[in-house]
Amino acid sequence: MTVRRIEGELPVAFRYTPGVGNTAFFEALRDRGTFLGSRCADCGVTYLPARIFCERCLAGLVPDTECGPEGTVESWTVARQDVDGRPLDPPVTFALVRLDGADTVLLHRLLGTADIGGRVRAVLRPERTASILDLQGFEPV
């Protein structure tokens, strides 16, 4: 019996549109440097980035609630390897940050160090393209 290894690919790429809710979030970030969320008054929950529906009650929501730009570190970690296991030099710190006014958290880079519960502020890039990378990261206040 011959041992064979038959290779194949799945030759597809994806174009992800951010949808109605995230488009409103990204455009506000790009054009005004603000963080746009949406609030369900019935459930008392503010979602950031903005969503067009409340996941708890399926009410339609409007992206009209600004959050941040300061917030609180909910958790953090230091990545010392990239996805292929190669060393990252320097290491990169990531944090989950809850911006003031939001009930949900954002995953992004922590520029510096902060403990859980520590206060941070968003750092924006001057040239912005409607991307999560328009946000450079969060720096300690």
């Binding site: 290894r5 290779e7 799945l10 790429a13 174009r15 992800y16 951010p18 990204f26």
Partner: peptide, 19 residues
């Protein structure tokens, strides 16, 4: 469209035909 992201499915499979 603003904010869209393009990502290839960057995987390769290897299959054994079996007995």
């Amino acid at each position: 469209v603003a904010g869209a992201v393009d990502t290839p499915l960057d995987v390769l499979y290897a299959w054994d035909p079996g007995d």
